[in-house]
Design a protein around this nucleic acid. Structure first.
Ligand SMILES: NC(=O)c1ccc[n+]([C@@H]2O[C@H](COP(=O)([O-])OP(=O)(O)OC[C@H]3O[C@@H](n4cnc5c(N)ncnc54)[C@H](O)[C@@H]3O)[C@@H](O)[C@H]2O)c1
Ligand SMILES: NC(=O)c1ccc[n+]([C@@H]2O[C@H](COP(=O)([O-])OP(=O)(O)OC[C@H]3O[C@@H](n4cnc5c(N)ncnc54)[C@H](O)[C@@H]3O)[C@@H](O)[C@H]2O)c1
Lengths: 219, 219
DNA sequence: TTAAGTATGTGAAAACTTTAACGACTTCTG
DNA sequence: CAGAAGTCGTTAAAGTTTTCACATACTTAA
């Protein structure tokens, strides 16, 4: 548990993977250096915010020059522990679960779904996206030492499965169900609530009008 | 454009759909009233925050009593424009797009995907989750007056499709691609970046340890 | 060498968000 | 009906995040 760096603001921490991805892009394009201004345009985060974010880790750049892409990339690779693959479990191989299993998170992320569980006998024993689907009854036996789970079961099953995941040693859950699950205080749950995101977008559109309605040519 | 209510904090606005959903649940359960404390336990938002959020809309509750579920529900139904169905388009009927098409957002949300587009001829003409899939070449002709789009195409296609959506009159985009798209300033884009959410969860687990490692019985 | 140009890192301010605390009023109980 | 209990709405404080603005230091090119 790397504690030497503990008070990076949460808002900053959430942006790190985004920076990392775009640095990877720049690197693949052969770019050797980048300024906070350029990065700002790419990731759509204010350049002062980017400089501030980076500064929490020390002086990563050089005045008058910007940041060395290779150096920054390798710094973030370490910071984000991208040298070791993070292995996760997925529970609920339905519509959403299947989509995730078919997606290669390892691409620029070094995270891999290792095993999946479902209650539906027809799914059990098959492979989806190269991942074996086990029966949910075998959760405790087969989950091994995985500490992160993606939850894509029906809302009604969410709390029960969560309790079992916690008991089985999982410490982080990415919850896609609409249920707000109860967990002991040492377990971290992140909610991704797609229906709410959609509804919020619609609300903002109606109630938070942006600038100019239109003027023929923009952007 | 309902302007009478314009300075509700964004953080509050984002929680409204969550409140609305849980009020619906309570209502189905036949509950007549609810306190900010009960609601707090259900949605996992501090009760003071809930009271503060509600207070932006006036005095919705009664001291010593709490909130009347039916009243609150109908208030939020109006506030969130849930009386009219919001119709949206989906672009990219792949793994993720298919999952969304098979999901019934209308359940407690009154949002409906009306039409889908894809570049793959084999998909065009089929129905997925009851939604007709059209060819992307027909986007401009068939999108009609829809003003919200869900973007689930490959990242490489994201900017091109976005430009066409904007030109076709769409004003809100829910972007699931890892691309950070450019839009004129009057267009609203919300990003849902699943790979980043997963990576951020992993980062938080490693670097932001929560309380007690464990003590046998919790929660 | 020097001058012009560039871009960082950060102090300070501003903006936004959450949380604590409590007076005021309502409901409940006996 | 009176006192106890409950709960809101809000003032004020604390905490978090973003943004401004600039001294400083490096780069570039002549
Ligand atoms: N599909 C979407 O677009 C979408 C959108 C928003 C929210 N969600 C939420 O995501 C979750 C999954 O959605 P979905 O569309 O994939 O649903 P789904 O019904 O397609 O898939 C659920 C899967 O979980 C399995 N399952 C059921 N009970 C189980 C249990 N006890 N243990 C293990 N597996 C079990 C089912 O067999 C099924 O394969 C739901 O909670 C849903 O509300 C989905
Ligand atoms: N599946 C996941 O779990 C997941 C996770 C994170 C991010 N994403 C992102 O979501 C997006 C979609 O992912 P996916 O897994 O569904 O991909 P996918 O390849 O399964 O689906 C993409 C679909 O878009 C269609 N398409 C391609 N070009 C098009 C165009 N110009 N116009 C219209 N349609 C076009 C393809 O025919 C295909 O059906 C991608 O950008 C991906 O990076 C997906």
């Amino acid at each position: 548990m790397d504690m030497e760096q503990a008070k990076i603001p949460q808002a900053t921490a959430k942006r790190l993977p985004l920076y990392y991805r775009f640095l990877n892009n720049l690197h693949s394009q052969g770019k050797l250096r980048v300024s906070s201004k350029e990065l700002s345009e790419a990731v759509k985060v204010d350049s002062a915010t980017i400089r501030r974010d980076f500064s929490y880790f020390g002086a990563l750049g050089k005045k008058g020059y910007g940041y060395n892409v290779e150096y920054l990339l390798s710094f973030f690779r370490k910071t984000l522990d991208q040298d070791e693959t993070t292995r996760v479990a997925l529970i609920g191989v339905g519509n959403l679960g299947t989509a995730f299993l078919n997606y290669n998170f390892t691409k620029n992320n070094n995270t891999k779904i290792e095993i999946a569980f479902d209650a539906n006998q027809e799914r059990v024993g098959t492979e989806v996206g190269g991942v074996r689907v086990e029966h949910i009854d075998q959760l405790e036996e087969k989950i091994g030492d995985l500490s992160v789970a993606i939850l894509t079961v029906p809302a009604s099953a969410a709390q029960g499965i969560t309790d079992r995941l916690v008991e089985a040693g999982v410490s982080g859950i990415l919850n896609f169900t609409p249920a707000r699950i109860n967990v002991p205080s040492h377990i971290r749950v992140h909610h991704i609530d797609l229906a709410i995101e959609l509804q919020a977008l619609v609300y903002f559109l109606k109630h938070y009008p942006l600038n100019e309605p239109e003027t023929e040519e923009d952007q």
